[in-house]
């Protein structure tokens, strides 16, 4: 026996235990029954596993990387549920499950909306001289402004070919591109007779149209066919009607995401695309960031995801036919899926 907190004490405890058995308070037959009954229950592990699986399937709620708000909502729902079970009984279970689903869906909706509003706030913050000045001394404001892309990153030409080819081949009626950078993909599609529109937080209609030798309209209209507005992807998609899009290309924003923004983005894509619509997600390959200076690259702001993460999110929000085009040596990869 160990020496803590004294051999004498442990000896006294052992004596008392022996006395309980010898005096018949805890007879050997009782102790044997305690042990034997456990062994009997534990022996049939197959039956236990089946029973446990049935019970687990009954109570399991989906859990995935959906952010703290949803996590908290699920915990709250579970807590309410367990209290309800104790006080009212099993009759409320189906109602409870329906409420749980509804609450999770509502929390998801709320989370996505907050991401849309945050995106709008970031765009406004990024262009506000007051906030930019404030940003020099305030970490909070700096986090807003630092999240804006400071340069328009052109899509890898091979990936742009791939996306254009896929959209042209599928003959979609209209393409929406968020965030479209300098609009080169839209311009190219439009040259092949496929009209489109787009948004980009760094869009400067006149300058970009000027670079392309076209005339920029008040909202980035180029050549009368291409429409681009100045907005982030989340903000832009948040303003679209449900089920109104035939094809959606997501890029730019995909290079600098937090996981909860990625969820919101796919959630919005699922809601805004019509059934059968195509989504193309184009992102920098995370490997290409490994060569960059870890502080200079500010990984907390620029965070491209691996294709597998997009696949998980797309399938979670009901997309099918998910394909990944990821080649070593390319700056970008693309993930396609059908609503």
């Amino acid at each position: 026996m160990s020496s803590s907190p004294g051999e004498e004490l442990l000896g006294e405890i052992a004596n008392e235990a022996r006395g309980l058995v010898e005096n018949g308070v805890l007879p050997v037959v009782y102790l044997d029954e305690l042990e034997d009954s456990w062994q009997a229950i534990a022996a049939d592990k197959r039956a236990l596993a089946v029973a446990a699986a049935a019970s687990d399937a009954d109570s399991r709620a989906g859990a995935d990387g959906s952010g703290p708000l949803l996590g908290a909502a699920r915990v709250a729902v579970r807590r309410v549920g367990s209290r309800a079970k104790r006080s009212v009984g099993s009759r409320v279970r189906s109602l409870e499950r329906a409420s749980a689903r509804l609450a999770v869906r509502y929390a998801e909706e709320l989370s996505t909306r907050s991401q849309v509003e945050l995106d709008r706030a970031r765009r406004l913050g990024g262009s506000s001289p007051v906030l930019l000045r404030f940003a020099r001394v305030s970490p909070v404001a700096r986090s807003y402004t630092s999240l804006r892309r400071v340069e328009v990153v052109s899509m890898d030409p091979a990936i742009e070919d791939l996306v254009a080819d896929r959209l042209l081949r599928h003959g979609v009626p209209h393409v929406v591109h968020a965030e479209c950078g300098d609009g080169s993909l839209l311009r190219r599609l439009s040259e092949h007779g496929l009209p489109g529109e787009g948004a980009d937080p760094a869009w400067d209609g006149a300058a970009d149209a000027g670079r392309a030798g076209e005339t920029g309209g008040p909202h980035g209209e180029v050549g009368g066919r291409l429409q681009v507005v100045r907005a982030g992807a989340l903000e832009y998609l948040g303003g679209k009607r449900s089920g109104s899009l035939g094809a959606l290309v997501l890029s730019g924003i995909t290079d600098g995401l937090r996981p909860s923004s990625a969820r919101a983005l796919v959630h919005l894509a699922a809601g805004k695309l019509r059934r059968g619509g195509t989504v193309a997600i184009v992102s920098r390959r995370p490997g290409s960031l490994a060569d960059m200076d870890p502080i200079g690259a500010d990984l907390s702001a620029k965070r491209p995801l691996r294709p597998v993460t997009w696949c998980h999110l797309l399938s979670r929000y009901g997309f099918g036919d998910i394909t990944v085009h990821d080649e070593a040596g390319r700056a970008h990869y693309a993930v396609f899926a059908t609503r």
């Binding site: 160990s2 020496s3 803590s4 008392e16 235990a17 805890l26």
Partner: peptide, 22 residues
């Protein structure tokens, strides 16, 4: 635990019950 608890060398139920009672 060191000496800040009752550390038993066995865990027969009657011994643990007696220790908890003590």
């Amino acid at each position: 635990v060191v000496d800040a608890g009752v550390v038993l060398g066995a865990k027969s139920p009657e011994l643990v019950a007696a220790a908890a009672h003590r």
